[in-house]
Amino acid sequence: MAHDSHDSHEYVPEIAVDRDGNQHEVQGWQGDTYGGKLGFWLFMLTEVMMFGSMFMVLSYYFHLHPQDFLDASAGLNRVLGGTNTVVLLVSALTMGLGLLKMRNGDVKGAKLMIWATILLALVFLGVKAVEWTAEYHHGIFLGLDALQSGNEHSLPFGQILFFGMYFSMTGLHGVHIIIGIGLMLWLLKRINSGKVTPEHNILHFNIALYWDLVHLIWVFVFPYFYMIGAGDIAGGVIHGH
């Protein structure tokens, strides 16, 4: 069965001939690099729609409860959030450099860069864990009294909604980070088994795109949650101390 040979070198495109005898190369689904790229971009648009919808929910309630949102935002830990921003920023660079090395034939360097990206992703998750733990001990976590209605610890509506969305959105972003780590490990496996090479790097290219998208989402998640209320207490860190 022809399609089981993964080596797309063997695939010879068909030629269609028009009535004047001119030859036209037929694009097959095999070895269609641009098609792979287009398909992955389309997939990323679905992520844009998903996170876009969540930002819409967030904006809806921001509009209904502006002051509550600013108050809640002021309470987040900007040092940890900012650290993660920088971590993710650098990881986007390592991922990009890895792809660059792969394309230029430096497979070893590429693998090193992917490992660096995985490491930074783990750092990101670690910081996130520290942050959520601190918030938990501070009494703010899904299911705790502060985020329930009608008890003495209840926060105002706007703050409940802010934190509800904060845990949902950063949580889903974290899930994307974990999926990203999984994808990178898979990529390393494919590189080791020679399925991804400097000539056929579409998988590497697409996973790099995915990682940039994860970064891109954070570019909006970070200011919307951590920074909008920063003006109230300049540079302040309320909890975690």
Binding site: Y61, G143, I160, S168
Partner: peptide, 16 residues
């Protein structure tokens, strides 16, 4: 997890 966004008792809006 009771994030509240569709729950009117926490200020969530079912119309959303």
């Amino acid at each position: 997890f009771g994030i509240g966004i569709f729950d009117p008792s926490k200020g969530g809006d079912p119309v959303l």
